[in-house]
Amino acid sequence: MIRVNVPNKSKAAKTRNLGAKRCCRFSISVTSNTENKLDALAISTGFTRSELCDYLLQICVNSPDLVNSIQDKFNKNERYRVHPRIINDGEKQVVIY
């Protein structure tokens, strides 16, 4: 599995609505079991629940193996399948679709 470096704490969650950065809010519904796990992990790591969710989503969308696995299992339209690639951008690796 390819490892993608994600910052320890989400900068996006701390800089929302500042400068030219665009913020998109959306809400999700989770089971109470998932909520309990998120709360426990957030307390354990010192993240807020929002920071933790942002961090977990960053890991998911920046992991080519996970993206491909989800598409292999659930893809409905091959025309819209994304093809994640890792490129070197200076000293860091970036995932692009």
Rank of each mutant, 00 (worst) to 15 (best):
N33T: 13
Y55R: 13
R22D: 10
C53V: 14
K76H: 02
Y97D: 08
A12M: 08
R49I: 05
D72V: 01
F47Q: 04
P64S: 02
I28G: 04
V82F: 04
S63D: 10
G46N: 03
V94N: 07
K73N: 04
R49F: 01
L18C: 08
Y97M: 11
L38C: 10
F47W: 00
S32Q: 12
R3D: 11
N88C: 09
V30I: 12
C23H: 12
A42E: 06
R25I: 08
D65F: 02
G19R: 07
N68R: 05
V67R: 03
I86M: 04
Q93D: 11
G46V: 04
R85T: 02
V82S: 09
L38N: 09
G90P: 02
G19V: 05
P84T: 02
R16N: 06
S69G: 01
G46M: 03
N33W: 09
N77W: 03
K14F: 06
I70C: 01
S63A: 03
N77I: 01
R81A: 03
K14M: 08
S69E: 05
P64A: 00
T31W: 07
P7F: 05
L66E: 08
T48P: 00
D54P: 04
N8V: 13
A12Q: 09
F26P: 04
S32I: 09
D54C: 15
G90S: 07
K37W: 09
Q93H: 10
K11L: 08
F74W: 12
N75F: 03
Q58I: 07
I2A: 05
T15N: 13
H83L: 10
K73R: 05
R22H: 10
F74T: 01
